[in-house]
Design a protein around this nucleic acid. Structure first.
Lengths: 205, 205
DNA sequence: CACGAACTGGATAGTCAAATCCAGTTCGCC
DNA sequence: GGCGAACTGGATTTGACTATCCAGTTCGTG
């Protein structure tokens, strides 16, 4: 059903499946997994109940598809922004884009991956493992961006990109948690700016 | 029911109410709010259904009581650790205690306040506001700790404790999000250590 | 065009949780 | 010790959600 059946999907079937996952992803980001019923998804996607169970074994399988969808969307977007880091100005532009996005969203929603993780980590081992991998990919995207700066001579060769990327992702995720609760980007800005200040200390002398 | 009725509780009634809140807090931290049913709470607290609705108007009121309970427990505990910061060694001891606690818990659970926030922020304005205040109290506890270090001459007078406390809390919360998902304290350690490195730069020359 | 597989729609079991009701017990106080 | 309020237990109503079933339609392919 998951891999083999996906290959057997017709164009129409694939479109229907995509519509279901996309609608479910949006609803789950807004209301959480438990707060999103299959009737909600049915209405939002404009399909009928049986379609959902035709494409997914149960709600858990749909949830896993949503995790994959959000991972591709978010980490893919981040990778595009980060892969070309070649200056501190570019690093600050990445920081500004994150802050601006949250402000445009009125600090609502937080990070969809973190929301899913908070709800699923303790009672769905598969989901937790998938989300752990998502965060690993995100950290690697940041690390590769820092490595790119090293390669361009903007950072010293002895910079520990691995360590800094984990710290940066922690500051970012925590900033998003606080932004969502406090409806303010102050903590997000403070966290990211502090991490950038640390990184700037690794400029060649 | 909330303030006035609390005053009218007898000792036995108060004990029953406490038992319900405590049981609900534990269950909600483990399984989330939506994943915790009132029958679950009833069994865990050893009471019957009507007790819950005798002490709380509805599940939302119980949830708000849980937020208050966790805020007092967690922020109170943090305040006790932070209020006596008088050296970098004490700051590192606080960091070590946080990391050790997560390791003892096998990185399970994350921060109960962040879990509640992720689940409630977007559809319960009162809960979101209460949790925003919880995080503000936590940030103030960190800020006061840093101020204590300034007062003891361990940090320079011009240190921006407000900014640093927000950044530290962001790194801490994000580290907990990643610890829960990845079942590893590496990102938590990286985030906290980076923030401590920033703070150490504010030592008098 | 014909055949089977993929796809679709709507109705409906079966389950469980939120909240209420009511009958009975214990407590605080005079 | 007796009165009213606070407290307790369990049955029950009401509603929503997950998942299934089945009958009908469209699609891909020889």
């Amino acid at each position: 059903m998951t891999q083999t059946a996906t290959a057997r999907l017709t164009a129409r079937g694939q479109a229907t499946r995509d519509r279901i996952v996309s609608a479910a992803a949006q609803l789950m980001a807004e209301r959480g997994v438990a707060g999103t019923s299959t009737p909600d998804v049915r209405d939002a996607a404009g399909v009928s109940s049986s379609q959902i169970y035709h494409y997914f074994a149960d709600k858990g399988a749909l949830t896993r598809a949503v995790i994959e969808f959000q991972t591709t969307r978010i980490v893919g977007g981040q990778h595009a922004l980060l892969s070309r880091l070649d200056s501190f100005a570019a690093l600050r532009a990445w920081r500004d884009a994150l802050v601006q996005l949250q402000q445009d969203l009125h600090c609502e929603g937080g990070c969809p991956l973190a929301t899913l993780s908070g709800e699923l980590a303790e009672h769905d081992a598969d989901a937790r493992a998938a989300l752990a991998y998502s965060f690993t990919l995100w950290a690697e995207a940041i690390r590769d961006g820092l490595q790119h700066m090293i390669d361009h001579g903007v950072l010293r060769e002895d910079t520990d990109a691995e360590h800094l990327s984990l710290a940066m992702l922690a500051a970012l995720q925590g900033g998003l948690v606080l932004a969502q609760a406090q409806r303010s980007t102050k903590a997000l800005e403070a966290g990211l700016d502090s991490m950038i200040a640390i990184i700037e200390r690794h400029a060649p002398k």
